[in-house]
């Protein structure tokens, strides 16, 4: 702790900031599908440049929670949200905030790889930038290479950038989707069970790249795989029936859970 404070003191700009700045905070977040109340008063503080895992049994609202963060939840008919999600202290649900701009800052990767099948690998990655009106070829080329590099895919596809996005293997498709999300340079990357459709080798690659990403991005990953949460995340939140049961450093939460429910879930008594 002392060490960190000293380090902070050498950078005067950061003095007034907390040691580890918060990137996303949810405040009394509630979400519904029709009459189904799926998130209940979830208040969660997600730290910048760390990986936060959200675990919990199926149907506990994990996916809904992260889909509320980039305002994807409201796209489902009859979905409702109340409460606040702060991105750098600004409420993304405030009046007049354009959800499109929120989603450009908070990228997302889905459970099943969903590249655009009619587009080439290159165009898949460049799609977001082109939406932003980027037409400069040199800049697009650089961004595509950088994103594919970050997604650990560049070496595998650098000679077949013209191939269709759907011609890649499942694991490669998922990394292509990660590259597509990173290309628009979001500040946060949300991952909704990104490995659930992949084999162990593809999963290992994605876990490795997630660890690599936290230098530049804040990552929130939903997973039903507790070992995965333990391997990749710095912080873990345990959700049960739409409520946040426990949240803390991953090692602490896994080794000394304070709540009985968490312990029972982690030891496989239910879920």
């Amino acid at each position: 702790m002392d060490k960190e404070l000293k380090a902070e003191n050498t950078k005067p700009i950061l003095i007034s900031r907390p040691v580890e700045p918060l990137k996303i905070q949810t405040d009394k977040l509630n979400a519904w599908f029709g009459n189904n109340h799926v998130l209940k008063d979830v208040s969660l503080r997600i730290k910048e440049n760390h990986v936060t895992a959200i675990i919990g049994p199926s149907g506990c609202g994990k996916s809904t929670l992260i889909r509320c963060m980039n305002r994807m939840h409201e796209l489902v008919p009859q979905a409702k949200v109340s409460g606040a999600v702060l991105l750098d202290d600004a409420n993304v649900y405030a009046k007049g905030v354009d959800p499109v701009s929120v989603r450009r800052k908070i990228g997302m990767v889905f459970q099943k790889p969903n590249p655009f099948p009619t587009m080439s690998v290159y165009d898949n990655v460049a799609a977001g930038l082109k939406l932003n009106g980027e037409r400069d070829h040199a800049r697009l080329d650089r961004a595509v290479k950088r994103s594919l590099d970050l997604a650990f895919l560049w070496e595998e596809v650098k000679h077949e950038l013209d191939k269709s996005g759907s011609s890649l293997s499942g694991g490669q498709q998922q990394r292509l989707c990660i590259a597509r999300a990173l290309a628009v340079e979001p500040e946060v990357l949300l991952m909704d069970e990104p490995c659930s459709a992949l084999d162990p080798i593809a999963t290992a690659k994605i876990e490795e790249l997630i660890t690599n990403l936290k230098d530049q991005y804040t990552v929130v990953i939903v997973t039903h795989n507790m070992q995965q949460a333990a391997r990749v995340s710095d912080y873990t939140a345990f959700l049960y029936l739409g409520q946040l049961i426990e949240y803390g450093e991953t090692t602490n939460l896994f080794e000394n859970p304070t709540e009985e429910l968490t312990e029972r879930y982690l030891t496989g008594k239910f879920g």
């Binding site: 796209l75 499109v100 990228g107 969903n114 799609a127 977001g128 932003n132 290309a183």
Partner: peptide
């Protein structure tokens, strides 16, 4: 068209028309 395609477009910041 599977809804995952629409979500993919939304997630990179596409407007409704996009």
């Amino acid at each position: 068209v599977p809804s995952s395609q629409r979500e993919a477009a939304y997630s990179i910041g596409a407007t409704r028309w996009e």
